[in-house]
Simulated assay, not measured.
Amino acid sequence: MSLTGQKILLGVSAGIAAYKSCELVRRLIEAGAEVRVVMTRSATEFVTPLTFQALSGHPVRTDLFDAQAEAGMDHIELARWPDQVLIAPATADLMARLAHGLADDLLTTVCLATQAPIALAPTMNQGMWSAPATQRNVRLLDALGYRLYGPSSGEQACGDVGPGRMWEPQQLLEALQTTGVNGPLAGLHILLTAGPTREPIDPVRYLSNRSSGRMGFALAAAARRAGAQVTLVHGPVTIPIPAGIEAVAVETAQQMHTAVMSRVSSADVFIATAAVADYRPESPASEKIKKQSEHLQLELARTSDILAEVAALPRRPFVVGFAAETQQVKQHALAKLESKQLDMIAANDVSAGQGFDQEDNALQVFWPGGEHMLPRQSKHQLAEALLQLVAERVKQK
């Protein structure tokens, strides 16, 4: 798809592949994009800012504290400017700083402040790429919603052979043309729920479940990368919020119901991955319950069925449900698909500790008249594959 009129902020960090980014600027402009460049101080040791200024037609920013630049476009305004951000090359050091939310120079500050999709084109020695610390940072960046383009394998400047080469400018150009604002979900508002709910028994105890929220958060990050506006209503979790989305934190099923129903009218797609409690204590104690008798009875009341209520709306979004089952997965999923009149349902087997609180999973996806099996893979890969199915079905509605 065309990049005509797209505003692309190119970040350049201190890798030997920085010279390729000069060609990348030229290709982006030929494709119709407007390009502005931010360099780290160390990157200027490889290519001068003047080179990028001549190619882009705009002054190059390198300093967080630049009195002249701040007068016209401070770092927050710069963060608001782009439709997409691409950092090429992205060194191991820069990736580590982004993974941990540091903002100690202009480029990392802009990345932390922007709402635009961010892509990284890694470049480093093959040993650095394979290092456990780097791979941990890659997983963190993926969870935060950053898209990684590459690296590719081959001979490196140091003489080593292996993964760590930056993608060629043409590859990066084509990647930008098929993601972000031009992605399969561009222009859509996706509302998701994720994580568990907690239903209070007394001020210190609650009923909950084993959901970690990883699948829903992976879907939120993937949807943002695919160009969607994303709202994520989530229960209590310990994983980082993906970049560039609206996150709404709740605790109870009733709070999640209120948050969803107040936002669903603007949503094009609703994906319910949250493990919402089916029952709640009817009368939570106002004080901590003391251990006095041998048995304790709790009177439970049904909670609102958020998924069913959204699906029953007169003007409803495309509705995707999730079914976590321990037996007869397909039968239960198809029954839920029909009874709640869903557009799609993704089912997984959570028996024997599968699915919940794991980094990978497998899904059986069903819709009226069709089905597709997504094999066991990381939840981030699974999210990409599931959203591709969603995008295809939404277009057919």
Rank of each mutant, 00 (worst) to 15 (best):
V264D: 12
A274E: 00
H295W: 07
L298N: 10
E287I: 07
A301V: 13
L296Q: 13
P240F: 03
A272I: 04
V260M: 10
P242L: 13
A274C: 04
V260E: 04
S266A: 15
A247T: 11
S293N: 07
G244A: 09
I245W: 03
A249L: 13
S283R: 13
Q297D: 09
Q255V: 02
P242E: 14
S283W: 05
A249G: 04
H257P: 00
G244L: 09
E282Y: 00
T252F: 08
E246T: 15
Q292E: 13
A249Y: 07
S262H: 05
S286V: 12
Q254N: 10
G244Q: 11
P240H: 06
V276H: 06
I241E: 15
K290F: 03
E282L: 11
E294A: 14
E294N: 14
I245N: 07
A253K: 06
R263E: 02
A249V: 08
E287M: 08
I289T: 13
I245A: 04
A274K: 04
P284E: 02
Q297C: 02
S293E: 11
A249S: 15
E299S: 09
V260F: 02
Q292N: 12
A247K: 09
P281W: 05
A277Y: 04
E282F: 00
R280A: 14
S293H: 13
V260H: 08
G244V: 09
R263A: 14
A285P: 10
E294V: 00
A301C: 02
A272D: 09
A285C: 12
Q292L: 14
A274V: 05
D268F: 08
R302M: 03
V269H: 08
S293G: 00
I289F: 02
A277K: 06
S262I: 01
A259N: 10
S286D: 15
A277M: 10
K288W: 07
E299K: 04
K288R: 13
E294Q: 14
A243F: 06
A277S: 15
E294W: 07
E287C: 06
D278C: 11
A301N: 01
A274W: 05
E251F: 01
A275R: 14
E299I: 06
S283M: 08
V248E: 10
T303Q: 05
S266T: 15
I271S: 10
A274N: 03
R263N: 14
A274L: 04
S283G: 00
A272Q: 13
A277L: 07
I245T: 12
V248L: 07
V260L: 05
A267Y: 04
Q297P: 00
A272L: 01
S293W: 02
V250Q: 03
